[in-house]
Design a protein around this nucleic acid. Sequence first.
DNA 1: ACTCTAATTAGAGAAATATCTAAATAAGGC
DNA 2: GCCTTATTTAGATATTTCTCTAATTAGAGT
Lengths: 111, 111
Amino acid sequence: MVSEQHLDAVFHALSDPTRRAMLRALAGGEHNIGELAQPFDMSFPAASKHVRVLEQAGLVRREVRGRSHICRLAPEALADASGWFAFYEQFWTERFDALDALFRQSKGSSQ
Amino acid sequence: MVSEQHLDAVFHALSDPTRRAMLRALAGGEHNIGELAQPFDMSFPAASKHVRVLEQAGLVRREVRGRSHICRLAPEALADASGWFAFYEQFWTERFDALDALFRQSKGSSQ
DNA sequence: ACTCTAATTAGAGAAATATCTAAATAAGGC
DNA sequence: GCCTTATTTAGATATTTCTCTAATTAGAGT
């Protein structure tokens, strides 16, 4: 299920540059909250809340290991958001005209 | 140029279900503000402001024709947002393992 | 000019967001 | 037990967002 609410949360999470940078960091491997926070010129609690937003959107998973909270990229949520664009790809693909023809031909357009 | 600020605006615009529904309506062809607003149980000014958010994110273009403001999908901004995911596709593609091997091999990872 | 329609602007309020500092929790090491 | 490290929670504030109603602008038709 890719509920509207889930898309709300994922796109909202992605709308902040700090959070996108954190995802990029996690693409390189797991990090704890301190490591994720370190590059940013903001308080630790502020950064920690950004991580929570990512987690609640399903973009990041957290494993509590002792006193360290280790975060990993959760690509399914990213795939959901990416998948949302599939329907619109017809509008910027070179194959647009061909697809458009097929689209109109088949009449029953589903989304 | 796909500036961070532009991504902020686009993802924020996409984080609202009313706005996503408006884009879907525009995928079917041009509409004026009244037509875009009609399906939603909210005041006309509220809907009009959603259209403005889409416009300012570059997702929609407006042509003022007499007293009617005609909106069309502006797919470039959608393509920008969609393109942001390209880097992360390695994490949910079947080809992940193969790509991962290449990735580590080439050592100099960019982004 | 008057009136209808399409849309924006103004002004206001509620809710959510992003940030801070200070305090609390929790685990590890001595 | 005490200190240090990792993180959250609490409480406060400024900003932004979403929504409303009422008023305004602007164009079309008569």
